[in-house]
Design a protein around this nucleic acid. Structure first.
Length: 324
RNA sequence: GGGUCGGUACCGUAGCGGCGAGCGGAGCAGACUGUAAAUCUGUGACAUGGAAACAUCGAAGGUUCGAGUCCUUCCCGGCCCA
């Protein structure tokens, strides 16, 4: 390709992902031990301190001596997004590599993983989100009309993006407009160029999956465990500490529904049921994401007798790929 | 045993003589490049088929040009009375 130097070996990077509740965490510990790795969490919610039960965050005593990064690094009042994650994760990869260890990205947020693997370019926004806020307020004020109008504005400026983004998808319409406003370029062009990027990493990306029915059962069970483990108290505590419910962190599964219950807009049972079904929906979306992602290696639990066999398979593939 | 309300897709329901059956949820499928655990989209009663006729609303009969819709009987469920 266009690299002139190309002599330096690309940084190896291991990724373990998959839908929520497939059992990534436990495997990641074994993997880290076997490859002298350090784990970088690729999870949009576990970054928040004080959100432990609802995010099913790994407990320190379960880390078994494996260093974990990007867990508990933000307050629930902080905003968080891919770009922030990408910067932190790339930084951590360098750090870990400089120690001579293998960085292992573990988590279910596919978009975040993609952003790191392909170093997707996110332009810095200089206006601190002022333009975006303006558009959002317009939608709040004018409702449906504004939604349609914004889509038309996008069509005028970037017809391809308008074609690709459904008018109802307000967030993405606004982001596309913002992108154009800030850079003078079309997001459709930008995306097209990003899509074909090669990864700077010598990575291996494993997607752990399982029988759908089994996965759903595990999700339902895990939600019951969260409830038994005191999710309600955790959320109450967060609100008592001053959260309003509008934070990015409070959009997290379990938190949003619990907040609705605490605000009196549904019963406790309704909240629990909602957490379950919305978590199942989420798992399905994750699977959809990974299906279209290139360069992933699927590991279907149905084809292995236990975690040990899966670990063995992953290690085998690492050895082959990295000749170690 | 008597009365009463009801039996429509996986679930909940709409329908009150023109329905080859509406809606919501689940499920399934998909999009996604600065909120991504977010946001958004598509999809359901008929095995296939077919130009058409033909098949579906607990079952079977009946009335009618035409029945998920009306009548009769039966089966099943809820509630009330005994």
């Amino acid at each position: 390709m266009d690299s002139g130097s190309g002599e330096k070996r690309r940084q190896p990077l291991l990724v373990l992902t998959g839908p929520t509740a497939v059992g990534k965490t436990k495997l990641s510990i074994a993997l880290a031990h076997a490859l002298s790795g350090e784990i970088i969490s690729a999870d949009s919610m576990q970054v928040y301190r004080g959100m432990d039960i609802g995010t099913d965050k790994i407990r320190p005593e379960d880390m078994d001596g494996v260093p974990h990064h990007l867990i508990d690094v933000l307050d629930p009042t902080d905003d968080f997004h891919v770009y922030a994650f990408q910067k932190m994760a790339l930084h951590k990869i360098d750090e870990i590599a400089s120690r001579g260890n293998l960085p292992i990205l573990v988590g279910g947020t596919g978009f975040y993983i993609q952003a790191v693997l392909y170093q997707v370019d996110f332009t810095d926004s200089e206006d601190g989100g002022a333009y975006r806020k303006e558009l959002e307020e317009r939608v709040v004020r004018e409702g449906e009309d504004a939604v349609r109008a914004l889509h038309e504005e996008l069509r005028a400026v970037d017809p391809e993006a308008a074609e690709a983004i459904h008018a109802h998808n307000v967030k993405r319409v606004i982001r596309a407009l913002e992108f154009h406003h800030l850079t003078g370029e079309r997001i459709s062009d930008h995306n097209a160029s990003q899509r074909v990027k090669e990864s700077p990493f010598d990575f291996l990306c494993f997607v752990l999956t399982d029988d759908r029915a089994k996965l759903y059962e595990r999700i339902n069970r895990r939600v019951d465990e969260m409830i038994a483990g005191g999710l309600e108290g955790e959320v109450r505590g967060l609100f008592a500490a001053g959260l309003t419910g509008d934070e990015v962190s409070m959009q997290g599964l379990g938190y949003r529904q619990m907040a609705a219950y605490l605000h009196g807009s549904c019963s406790f049972d309704e909240a629990v049921t909602a957490i379950k079904t919305e978590t199942r929906h989420f798992a399905k979306r994750q699977i959809t994401w990974f299906k279209r992602e290139r360069d992933v290696r699927w590991l279907d639990r149905r084809e292995f007798k236990d975690d040990g066999a899966i670990l063995e398979e992953m290690l085998k593939q690492c050895k082959t790929a990295w000749k170690i």
